[in-house]
Computed example of a mutant assay.
Amino acid sequence: MIPPLVTRVDILGNKELVVVFNERMDSVNAVLGSVITLSGRNIIKRQLALPVFHNLILTLDSPLLEGREYVLNIRNISDCAGNLLRESNHILALPSQADSGDIVINEILFNPREGGVDFVELNNKSRKYISLNNWALGNTKNGEPNVFSIITTDQVIMPPNSYLALTTEPSVVKEQYPVDRPQNFLEMASFPAYSNVGGGVILRDNNLRLSDKFIYSEEMHHELLSDVKGVSLEKTDAEKTSADLSNWHSAAATVGYATPGYANSQMLTDMPEDVFTVEPEAFTPDNDGLDDYTIIRYSQSVTGRIAALRIYNISGRLIRNMIDNQLIGTTGEIRWDGTDDHGQLVPTGYYLLLVDTFDTTGNKQQFKKRVIVARKGK
């Protein structure tokens, strides 16, 4: 029983909104049964667009005002199977004209896994709401702009400080990578061809002005990766230019080697030093919904660290090899559910978590953490 999901809210005009769902909706419920409100405005008409029943058109009593944010609240709306979305809130505003560099290229997968597809992730690093209507994504030939594909002809709006993954097959990308924000995808009808070896990505706005450009090469991947198929290149600092090759890095193994639609795994942090923490330090893996696992959280001051995470019992015997010399991000977390390498639950007692990290320059660090596996009394 999976409830429907609001993938986005488009603004057709200053008096009309379109709520886009990820599946067919119940027409009677959407128009008459659900509760939908917009702060500061009355919704005077609802219409579920035919024939796909994915788009709910809302007509307002008065125009939206420029420079003002509105909150759209949707409650108790159901799909055709009767699955109910209890509540969904969305902040929206009239779009503003973008300046060059407001929306930038943030991540690219140009050499997908078998059965996979390319994707390019955008980041709106401005404080504006910006429409992608008639923006275009392109490639290069001999370093110059070549073939372009229109991103969308709809009024798809990127909110401030947001991410959006562009691809021809969002479902394939979602199957192959962990997705933190499934709604942050946009399906394009066609996609520029990006070479597996090297090439260029061009982002152009609706006035044909260059918004961003990135010239990439497979040699930019981390030198210790033996296979780069299915590994994306991520920007580490959104404020630095895409032309700075040192501003790009292979996505971390701990996130599945790509982060489509959400913050990059190799994004630089303000942490002055490297930190590993364990919480809770005592946990009870009995599937009762309370402290069933412990979380090892980490924050790194630089990108490109390789890590090994091993768990030992009180006798010093290795019982779980959590990470075996894998590329980690600047931040992340790893869960241990109290099982060993054979999937068996370990006995109660004290366990040592040993973390070793190193980089290509030879810098090494080691972190030790203690954790307790316990059982609740009957």
Rank of each mutant, 00 (worst) to 15 (best):
L50K: 14
S34H: 10
G33N: 02
V18E: 04
R41G: 11
V19A: 03
H54A: 05
V18R: 04
N29D: 07
D61V: 08
H54P: 00
L32F: 11
P51D: 15
L38A: 06
V18G: 01
I44L: 10
G33T: 02
V35E: 10
P51S: 15
L50M: 13
V31Q: 11
R46M: 05
H54F: 09
S39W: 00
H54K: 09
V19I: 14
V31G: 03
V31R: 10
L50Y: 15
L48W: 13
E23L: 00
M25W: 08
T37V: 05
L56T: 13
A30C: 10
V20L: 02
L56D: 12
V28Y: 08
R41D: 12
F21S: 02
F53H: 15
S34T: 15
I43M: 07
N55C: 02
L38E: 09
D61G: 11
N22C: 08
G33A: 00
V28N: 07
L50H: 13
S34F: 08
I44H: 14
F53P: 02
A49Q: 15
N29I: 00
L56Y: 14
P63K: 06
P51I: 14
F21P: 01
R24E: 14
V18L: 05
L64A: 03
G40M: 11
I57T: 13
N42M: 02
G40T: 10
L65K: 08
N55A: 04
N42G: 00
Q47K: 13
P51L: 15
L65E: 15
R46P: 04
